[in-house]
Computed example of a mutant assay.
Amino acid sequence: MLKTLVTAAIAAAGLSGAAIAQENDTLRVGMSGGYFPFTFVRQDELQGFEVDVMNAIGEEAGLDIAFETMSFSGLIGALEAGRIDTIANQITITPEREEAFVFTQPYVIDGAQVVTREGNTEIESVEDLRGKTVAVNLGSNFEQLLRDLPYADEIDIRTYESNIEQDTALGRVDAFVMDRVSSAQVIQESPLPLELAGQPFSEIRNAFPFRDTDEGRALRDRVDEALAALKQDGTLTEISQKWFDSDITTSATEAE
Rank of each mutant, 00 (worst) to 15 (best):
P209S: 13
T92Q: 06
F244L: 09
N24T: 13
E60L: 06
Y35D: 09
V108R: 00
E122F: 14
G14W: 10
P193G: 01
Y107K: 00
L2T: 13
F142L: 07
A21I: 08
R217E: 14
D179I: 03
L27A: 14
I109H: 13
D167L: 04
E59N: 02
G198A: 07
T213A: 02
M178D: 15
Q232A: 15
T104C: 07
I87A: 06
S240T: 07
A229Q: 10
E124M: 04
Q185A: 13
A12F: 10
G48H: 09
E143Q: 14
G58C: 04
R180A: 15
D221F: 13
S32I: 02
G131Q: 02
R172C: 05
L227S: 09
E99R: 09
V41F: 14
L194W: 03
M54G: 02
Q185T: 05
D25F: 07
Y151E: 03
E165A: 14
F38E: 03
R97A: 01
F72Y: 11
I10C: 11
E154D: 14
T39N: 14
K231C: 04
E45F: 05
L236P: 00
N89A: 12
G82Q: 02
A169S: 12
L230C: 12
I93R: 11
R130Y: 06
K242Y: 10
V29S: 04
E127V: 07
I93K: 12
F67L: 06
A207H: 03
G171N: 10
D245T: 06
E143R: 11
A18S: 15
R147W: 01
F210G: 06
A88S: 11
E50P: 00
Y35A: 01
D25V: 07
Y160V: 06
V102M: 08
T249C: 15
I76M: 10
M54C: 12
N55I: 05
A169V: 12
T104K: 04
P209H: 11
A169E: 12
T26N: 02
E99C: 02
S202K: 12
A66S: 14
S240N: 05
A252Y: 08
F208G: 05
Q185L: 02
A61H: 00
E154P: 01
A18W: 05
L2A: 15
T235K: 08
A12L: 13
E118Q: 14
I93E: 12
G119N: 06
D233I: 08
R97S: 01
Y151G: 05
I76N: 08
Q199E: 15
F176A: 06
E118K: 12
A56T: 05
V181W: 08
Q232T: 15
A152H: 10
T213H: 03
F210P: 00
A252G: 11
I109W: 11
D212H: 07
E203L: 07
G62V: 01
A11G: 03
Q185M: 10
E124W: 00
P193A: 02
V29F: 11
M31P: 00
P95K: 05
E96M: 10
G216T: 10
P106W: 10
A207T: 02
I57A: 06
E195G: 08
G30Q: 04
K3C: 05
A12V: 08
A12M: 10
P209L: 10
D85Y: 08
E203W: 01
P209Q: 09
L194N: 01
A11S: 09
V134C: 04
E122W: 14
I155Q: 02
E238D: 15
A12W: 06
Y107Q: 04
G58I: 05
N120R: 03
A88N: 01
I65L: 01
V177E: 05
T213G: 04
A252H: 08
